[in-house]
């Protein structure tokens, strides 16, 4: 047994102190937000550190749903997230499947066609995309924010990666039995790539749930608003930008809480897919 030196002990203490400080800078703001969201209107303005509400109250949430009427944007967001994620998963996995096929006429050009867009940041084409959406008559519809961004090279390549890990012998015997490409894809490849499907589903869920830029560009009437754009005017409202009628801090924090809860829920239940996806993403990009 090696003797643990004094400097080693010191390092151990300092290291853990740094990590505790780091974890606290992440947790304390979130606890503060959560606590303030459950205070009364009056208490939410007090300048004391709140990690627990003194007298728990749902005043903030009541205001959020009644006066601010967040329910509509919330439901719109649920709709856009579910439909958008579903389309994303099906379209990207179909494309990923085609990329693992051995050379066929036009394959090279198709590979380029679906990979080059990775080099083109969406932020840099917002003006022409805005014009396209306008010409397609999709302006101020939930379809606009559902469709724009529905396909990503990242997910196509991630699915291709997963499909490549499936033994070729399975599809060969299916083809001998007379199955077509679509049968092989839907019956053999999709069911065997569940981990891949889970990964892109979760990632796209987060992306769609958090979508802001497309909503800023395409939505202009409150009944079409999705969550982030509705929350933006609520949580950012400060004395400097007095565009909205003022609401108490508890309501603003309640808005943040309802936007966070679905994300935390997904994160807790699907953490292993996040780590997997991050790694593949970094290697691929």
């Amino acid at each position: 047994m090696m003797r643990i030196s004094a400097s080693r002990k010191l390092f151990f203490v300092i290291n853990n102190l740094i990590l505790i400080a780091l974890v606290l800078t992440m947790i304390v703001p979130l606890l503060n937000v959560l606590a303030v969201s459950f205070t009364t209107d009056l208490e939410s303005y007090e300048n004391t550190i709140k990690l627990f509400p003194r007298q728990p109250s749902i005043e903030g949430y009541v205001t959020l749903f009644q006066r601010v009427s967040i329910l509509r944007p919330f439901l719109n967001n649920v709709y856009v997230t579910i439909v958008g994620t579903f389309l994303h998963v099906i379209i990207c996995s179909m494309a990923g499947y085609v990329l693992i096929k051995e050379k066929f006429f036009g394959k090279t050009i198709l590979v380029y066609a679906v990979t080059i867009p990775m080099m083109i940041p969406f932020e840099m084409i917002i003006i022409p995309v805005y014009i396209t959406v306008k010409h397609l008559g999709l302006m101020n519809t939930l379809w606009s924010v559902t469709i724009v961004g529905v396909v990503s090279t990242f997910s196509i390549l991630l699915m291709k990666n997963y499909f490549e890990g499936i033994p070729k012998s399975l599809e060969e015997s299916a083809f001998i039995d007379g199955a077509g490409e679509s049968t092989v894809f839907f019956r053999i490849y999709l069911p065997l790539a569940k981990a891949g499907l889970a990964t892109i589903t979760i990632f796209q869920f987060v992306v769609k749930w958090n979508h802001l830029l497309t909503a800023i560009l395409f939505l202009n009437s409150p009944e079409k608003y999705t969550l982030q754009i509705a929350l933006k005017s609520l949580v950012v409202s400060q004395e400097l930008t007095s565009t909205t009628q003022s609401v108490a801090n508890n309501t603003r924090m309640a808005g943040i809480v309802i936007a966070i809860v679905p994300l935390i829920f997904v994160y807790v239940f699907a953490q292993k897919y996040f780590i997997k996806g991050i790694m593949i993403g970094a290697v691929k990009e």
Binding site: P29, N32, V36, V236, A259
Partner: peptide, 28 residues
Amino acid sequence: TIIYMPHLFSWVIVGGIWIFILSPNSGL
């Protein structure tokens, strides 16, 4: 697990949290 979490949040959430924390009266 904890330090990864903020990456999941949208900029509206993160911006909202920090504007509140940095605010003059009730900010942490």
